[in-house]
Design a protein around this nucleic acid. Structure first.
Lengths: 146, 146
DNA sequence: TATCATAATGAGAATCGTTATCAGTTAAGT
DNA sequence: ACTTAACTGATAACGATTCTCATTATGATA
C-alpha cells in the first residue's frame, strides 16, 4: 500500500480526464487545460476563486464551467470547507480517496485516511437510496490553536 | 434505544439553549427566542433564509446573529446541503445525532443513523488534532430519481 | 421605580461566491 | 477552406452572508 495521500496518480488523472473530456464530445482548449493541470498538481481541495487567481489568462466563468464539467464527469469532487465556499479536488479513477479534518478556529484543512472507518461507511445501507459516494469531515482544534 | 431520528428532546434543547444563552451573559429577547423555537421544532437542517422567511417580525440580520451565537455555544450545527447554502440543526446535549444522505439529482436530504459507522469514526485518531465532532454526508440517488 | 450600561434590534448597504448572458473566437470534422 | 457548435472572457445578475449604524430594550443597580 502506498503512503498516505499520495500523488502518484497526477499523470494518470490528467490523461484520464483528457480522455473522458474527449469521449464526452467536448473539445480541447487551452484555458480548460490550465484548470485541469492546476487540479492535477493539487493533493487536496482548492477553491474556485483560488484557481481563478492562480490562472493567468483564464476567465472566472471558464473556471466555473470547467469545474462543472469535470464534476459532471465524475472527475472532480466538491468538498465543504466550512467557510461558505467549496473546494474542489480530483477524483482518483482507482477509487482511492481521503477525507478532511478542519480546525474550527483557524480553518486549517488537513487530509486523512482511515481504513476501518471506510469499511464501516461502505456497510451502511439505506432503503430507497443507491449510495454512490460519501464525504466525511472531522472537526476539532489543531496543534497550533490548542 | 429510541426510534431513529426522534424529537423527544425538543423541550430539553429549548431549555438547555435558554440556560446556555443566559450563562453566556446574553440577554433574553423575543426575536432570538423565535429563532430558537423554530429550530427546536425542527428535526433536520433548515436554511437561514428559510428561517427568515418563516419568522414574522424578525430581521434577517438577527437570524444570522442568532445562528452565529447558538453555533458558538455548541447548540447548533452547520451542515452542508450541497447547494451552496448551509442548513442548521440543533445539537442534542445528550450527544445523540444523525447524519445525512442527499440525492444528487433532486437535492432531497434525508437523515440517517448508523451505530457501527459511528463507532468507527470515534476511533479515528489524528496526531496534532483534538477531534471534537464529525459530519458525514452520503451521496446517491433516491428512489424517485432512480 | 428610575437610572444606566450595553446587548439586541431592523433596515439597508456592502461583500463574497456563483451563475447567466452574449457577442466574438476557435477546434475539428468535412 | 468551410461550417458547425463548443468555447471563450467580460460583465451583469443573483443569492447568501456580513457589516454598519442609529434606535430600542433588557436587566442589574441604586
Amino acid at each position: 500500500m502506498s503512503t498516505a495521500i499520495d500523488s502518484h496518480s497526477t499523470k494518470d488523472w490528467t490523461g484520464f480526464a483528457e480522455q473522458q473530456i474527449s469521449e464526452a464530445g467536448l473539445r480541447h482548449s487551452s484555458p480548460r487545460q490550465k484548470v485541469i493541470d492546476l487540479l492535477a498538481g493539487q493533493d487536496c481541495a482548492v477553491t474556485a476563486l483560488e484557481m481563478d487567481a492562480r490562472l493567468e489568462g483564464v476567465g472566472r466563468a471558464t473556471v466555473y464551467r470547467a469545474i462543472e464539467q469535470l464534476e459532471g464527469l465524475g472527475l472532480l469532487q466538491k468538498v465543504d470547507l466550512g467557510a461558505s465556499a467549496y473546494g474542489y479536488e480530483k477524483v482518483d479513477p482507482s477509487g482511492h480517496h481521503h477525507h478532511h479534518i478542519v480546525c474550527d478556529s483557524c480553518g486549517l484543512v488537513r487530509p486523512f485516511e482511515d481504513e476501518s472507518m471506510e469499511t464501516a461507511i461502505h456497510e451502511v445501507r439505506q432503503s430507497g437510496f443507491r449510495i454512490k459516494g460519501h464525504e466525511v469531515t472531522l472537526h476539532g482544534t489543531c496543534q497550533d490553536c490548542a
